[in-house]
Each structure stands twice: as structure tokens, then as C-alpha cells.
Design a protein around this nucleic acid. Structure first.
Length: 304
DNA sequence: ACGCCTACCTGCTTGC
DNA sequence: TGCAAGCAGGTAGGCG
């Protein structure tokens, strides 16, 4: 899916284009896109007439803050996209939810694989309160409508681009863990917003093998990884995200970051630092790319 | 805490 | 050409 840079790009686009717009009508073409707690009809009924005050992002979710304090969340997952078009734009067979804006434009939620989810929540602040892996799912699945938006994200880890995410804090979180770096970076309760692309990119940049365990890092390793994570994410945002197949910004245009990546989907192509062919392995069922020379294997592991 | 598996979906690429 | 297998940016939930 869209990872942090892609979601950030979409959110910034939407902030620029639809902040202040009023939703005149909404049409749900795929019911399961509308997640608990709202059944689709109720979601539509409660949304019509609402004005969008501000759009931003938390983790990989787009947040549309409404004037009355409620928040619409859009989790794009693998192939979701939010695209603003004029009302006379050609129909899109993959538009799962269409929001007609009062000014005549449409905000379309497009999602080929239908994994994405849209929710509508009462307000209540967006504090991240940390919490373990189960914290989020337990709360969200209990089945009442009484969720506050803060709770939706209560199981997420820190935002890597926020000022408070220091190397020191990162070191504290890493130090206690024995998991593989690749798995940890993908764990949203450990750090929010990093996905498969940027995890591989950050590890390459920090010269750390994806199978290294967090507790094996020394201070220098941690500092490099901290820097690398933030750098690859920031560069991703500058380049409006990486498009491989479905990702586009709210303008419907592809991002420019895919061709600037160092390892992701560059299997067998030469490493930009040392020329050795990039290798692909599977870690935690996810495809993982790294340079076998720049990112030396952890002692005792066999990758051959 | 952690790894592993299945599920959710569709489309594209690859190999026979 | 046709068809099946494998692959894809994510995550929830269950089991061990």
C-alpha cells in the first residue's frame, strides 16, 4: 500500500483541494469498504451535509476532520486511492465510494483489491498512547459505537517524522527487542507508517542486514538506522511517493519515488554503492531486498 | 513477545 | 495462445 510518504502526499493534496468543501452526497458501491462501527447506510446518512475542515495523516491512515469534530478515516491498505475529479470525469469501475462535493467536484475512493476501509468516528483527540500489539484490536473489535478517534490509533507506535522521535527514544524501543529488524520496522505498534518499501530502503541506507536483531545493534547502528528511516520517508514525501502499480496522489498522478529507490524491487541489479547484485529473500512472508556486501549478514545466520 | 498461517481481493506477470 | 501459479505497497486475527 501506500506507506507513510504516499499517504502524506494524498493528505496534503486533499488539504489543499478539499478543505472547506461540503459533502453533498455519498454513494457506497462496495459495502465492506465501510468499516465498523457504521453500517453503510448510516455512514452515508451521517456524512451528508458535513464540511471537511482539515485533512492530515496518522500512520498510514488519511484523516478527514469534519467541522463538527468527527473524523473520517481512510485506510488505503494495498491499492486504495483518494482522487479528486470534476463531476463529469469518466466513471471508474474501481470507485468503491464516491463523495459528491457541493461545489460539483467528486472525491473518489478507488480500490482495486477492496482491502481499504473507511470509518466515521466521534472526535476526542488523537493522542498516541502506545500500547502493545493487541491494544488496538481489542478495543476496536468490541462492537459498540462508542469509540473515540484516539482509540483507533492507540496501538500504534510513534510517528517517525515527529520531533519527539529521537535517536534516544528509538534506541530505547529497539534495545529491548529480539526481533529481526525487517519485522520490527513493519510492525505498526513499534513504529508507525513504515511499510515494505521504506523498511528495505532504510536498512540499505543504514547498512544493516534485515535479519539482524534489534538487540544486536550498537549505538552507531541505531543512530544510522534512525537517520535512515527519517531520510527515506522524507525523500519519499518530496518525490510524492513511489508508484509501482496503483498508487497515485489525489491529483491522480503517479509519484516519482519508485525510480529513486536503492533496493526495493531491484533484485539482481547492481547496488548503487558497491555494484554487487541486490538480493531478494523472504522475511516474515514479505519480500525483502538488500545488498549482500553493504549489509553484512548477522553472525550465525545462513542466507545462502 | 514473537513467528507463522490464513483471510481479505483483483490484476498483472511469468513460465510451461 | 491459453492457463495456472506466483506475486503485489497492508493488516487483522488465530494458534503455538
Amino acid at each position: 500500500m501506500p506507506e507513510l510518504p504516499e499517504v502524506e502526499t494524498v493528505a496534503r493534496d486533499l488539504q489543499r483541494w478539499i478543505a472547506g468543501a461540503t459533502i453533498a452526497r455519498a454513494t457506497v458501491h462496495w459495502d465492506r469498504t465501510i468499516r465498523h462501527p457504521q453500517p453503510p447506510e448510516r455512514f452515508v446518512a451521517e456524512l451528508v451535509g458535513a464540511t471537511i475542515r482539515r485533512v492530515d495523516r496518522r500512520a498510514k491512515t488519511v484523516l478527514l476532520h469534519l467541522e463538527d469534530g468527527r473524523v473520517m478515516t481512510v485506510a488505503l491498505r494495498m491499492t486504495g486511492a483518494l482522487i479528486v475529479v470534476e463531476a463529469d470525469a469518466p466513471d471508474d469501475p474501481y470507485a468503491r465510494v464516491v463523495f459528491d462535493l457541493a461545489d460539483g467536484r467528486q472525491l473518489r475512493y478507488r480500490d482495486v483489491r477492496k482491502f481499504g476501509r473507511i470509518g466515521l468516528w466521534p472526535g476526542g483527540g488523537l493522542r498516541s498512547v502506545g500500547g502493545g500489539r493487541g491494544a488496538r484490536s481489542r478495543r476496536v473489535n468490541e462492537g459498540t459505537v462508542r469509540y473515540r478517534i484516539g482509540e483507533v490509533f492507540s496501538g500504534h507506535g510513534p510517528e517517525p517524522l515527529q520531533r519527539g522521535f529521537t535517536a534516544k527514544r528509538f534506541a530505547e524501543r529497539l534495545g529491548r527487542r529480539s526481533a529481526k529488524l525487517k519485522s520490527l520496522l513493519l510492525d505498526q505498534s513499534f513504529i508507525a507508517g513504515v511499510g515494505n518499501i521504506y523498511a528495505d530502503e532504510a536498512l540499505w541506507r543504514a547498512r544493516l542486514h534485515p535479519l539482524r536483531t534489534a538487540d544486536s545493534l550498537d549505538e552507531g547502528d541505531v543512530k544510522r538506522l534512525h537517520r535512515a528511516v527519517r531520510q527515506v520517508l522524507r525523500e519519499g514525501i518530496v518525490n510524492r511517493g513511489a508508484s509501482f502499480s496503483d498508487y497515485v496522489g489525489a491529483d491522480g498522478e503517479r509519484g516519482n519515488n519508485a525510480e529513486r529507490l536503492a533496493v526495493y524491487r531491484r533484485t539482481e541489479q547492481p547496488c548503487y554503492r558497491c555494484g554487487r547484485p541486490i538480493r531478494r529473500i523472504v522475511v516474515g512472508q514479505r519480500s525483502t531486498h538488500f545488498c549482500p556486501r553493504c549489509q553484512p549478514e548477522p553472525v550465525g545466520s545462513e542466507t545462502e
